[in-house]
């Protein structure tokens, strides 16, 4: 322990350790951009190829739910940033509160996602070849809406479930890691000289917000 920082022996000093940790996180974030970016490019290609089919698929998404989720995620990003801030100014109790609110926001996001997903499953909407067009058309007929024309509608929902699902997995993992930070914060591990874990998890949580900032207009608004 040097000034409250548990410096591992393979580092010169606390700042060397902090800089290395941050560099690792940023390398990880670059791979995240490339992973989600690939899906965005795929969406662009097939949207250009089958514009009518994508428009037919997009009508099943309710932008109001996406809008609420956007507000929830932005608020959670704020509370995450505040969690780091309160660690920096040595107020661990407030930091625990901010982190708890962040986890709660993640949970609200996932509950809304759960309702969106189950509603789609109920109508027979599944990704790719699993999409049950007969069942979906039956539901549309009952609702007095025209039947689906595109036979390859499953492709749109392949993109929808892959992109929002991969994002959802990130939210769940982020919630787990924030819980770990919250536990360590309650245990008194962090101080103004040492809060590396909260900082790193915070950057991960913000990238979840960053991806959603582009996913929301792509899926819910532009279609």
């Amino acid at each position: 322990m040097i000034n409250g920082v548990p410096v591992q022996e393979h580092y010169r000093d606390a700042s060397h350790q902090f800089a290395s940790a941050k560099e690792g996180i940023w390398l990880f974030m670059a791979t995240e951009i490339l992973m989600f970016g690939g899906l965005f490019v795929g969406y662009l290609i097939f949207h250009m190829k089958y514009p009518e089919m994508f428009a037919e698929g997009a009508q099943f998404l309710d932008w109001r739910l996406g809008f609420i989720n956007t507000l929830v995620l932005i608020f959670s990003s704020l509370t995450m940033a505040l969690g780091i801030y309160f660690c920096q100014i040595n107020q661990p109790k407030k930091a625990v509160g901010a982190l708890a609110v962040t986890i709660l926001c993640g949970a609200i996001f996932m509950v809304i996602k759960y309702f969106e997903y189950t509603h789609k499953f109920h109508m027979g909407i599944f990704p790719g070849r699993m999409l049950d067009l007969e069942m979906l058309n039956h539901h549309l007929h009952e609702m007095g809406k025209p039947a689906i024309v595109s036979t390859n509608l499953g492709m749109y929902f392949g993109f929808y479930f892959c992109m929002s699902g991969l994002h959802g997995i990130h939210v769940i993992l982020g919630m787990c890691m924030i819980s770990w930070c919250l536990y360590r914060c309650m245990r008194g591990d962090f101080n103004p000289n040492y809060y590396t874990a909260v900082e790193g998890v915070g950057i991960f949580w913000h990238i979840i917000d960053l991806v959603w900032i582009f996913l929301f207009p792509l899926l819910y608004l532009v279609g």
């Binding site: 800089a19 560099e23 940023w26 390398l27 995240e32 951009i33 940033a81 950057i203 917000d209």
Partner: peptide
């Protein structure tokens, strides 16, 4: 806004900004 202030990139080291920026360049 998220990258500059929430992720503290505005005040981060130049090398970290280059690393993250490289992801966007290749994208």
């Amino acid at each position: 806004l998220v990258m500059a202030w929430f992720m503290h990139l505005k005040y981060d080291k130049l090398s970290n900004r280059i690393i993250f920026g490289a992801g966007f360049v290749f994208l």
